[in-house]
């Protein structure tokens, strides 16, 4: 059902898009603060994190992020079916990513690394706050998929909900990659 949009509606859409962009930019300040906290607390020490697990976590996150991106591409081309399955892929790999981070928490604990070791502190705190954000944006991603099923599919002209959800999720994925580089390498 292609709806011809009026000029007013297009203008509204532009406002909502920009506003969402400002929201994501504003959220990025959180990341900057977290990175600053990492260096204030632990200098550039890299803690006893499992490099393997870190790489796998990042791989999951990359798959999830790209799946979400391509879900948006699919709906821009009008392919609702592909969008649904790619959103699902993105969501479940997101769950895997969070699970992998939690696994690293358990590993740190089992290795007997004291919680108050600066490098452990920053790991718990930075990834913890990131997971808080991931839960919120993961819910949004899930909701966009569920909503799509209930309203009978998105169309080429009507897919802002998917756009917003995938932008948010992409932001979360990029946030992880920043934290990965900052925590595991520099």
């Amino acid at each position: 059902m292609a709806i011809q949009k009026t000029r007013g509606e297009m203008e509204d859409m532009r406002a909502i898009r920009t506003g969402f962009g400002i929201f994501l930019a504003s959220l990025s300040v959180m990341l900057v603060t977290l990175v600053a906290a990492r260096y204030l607390t632990a200098g550039s020490t890299v803690g006893p994190y499992s490099q393997w697990l870190g790489a796998i976590t990042t791989l999951f996150m990359l798959i999830s992020g790209f799946a979400a991106r391509s879900a948006r591409t699919a709906i821009v081309r009008g392919n609702n079916q592909a969008m649904q399955s790619r959103l699902g892929l993105g969501f479940w790999f997101g769950v895997l990513t969070v699970a992998a981070v939690l696994l690293q928490w358990i590993l740190l604990n089992n290795q007997g690394v004291p919680v108050t070791l600066p490098a452990a502190e920053v790991y718990y705190v930075l990834t913890g706050i990131w997971m808080l954000l991931a839960v919120v944006s993961g819910f949004v991603l899930y909701a966009s998929k569920a909503r799509g099923r209930r309203i009978g599919g998105y169309t080429v002209d009507n897919h802002w909900d998917v756009d917003a959800a995938t932008y948010f999720w992409t932001w979360t994925a990029m946030g992880w990659i920043v934290l990965y580089i900052v925590l595991y390498f520099i």
Partner: peptide
């Protein structure tokens, strides 16, 4: 610009206190 900064700081301080970290 600045409110996400203080929110993050408060989350850090909250964890610092709750988990008795040394940040």
């Amino acid at each position: 610009i600045w409110f996400p900064e203080i929110q993050t700081t408060f989350l850090l301080a909250l964890t610092d206190k709750m988990a008795m970290l040394n940040m």
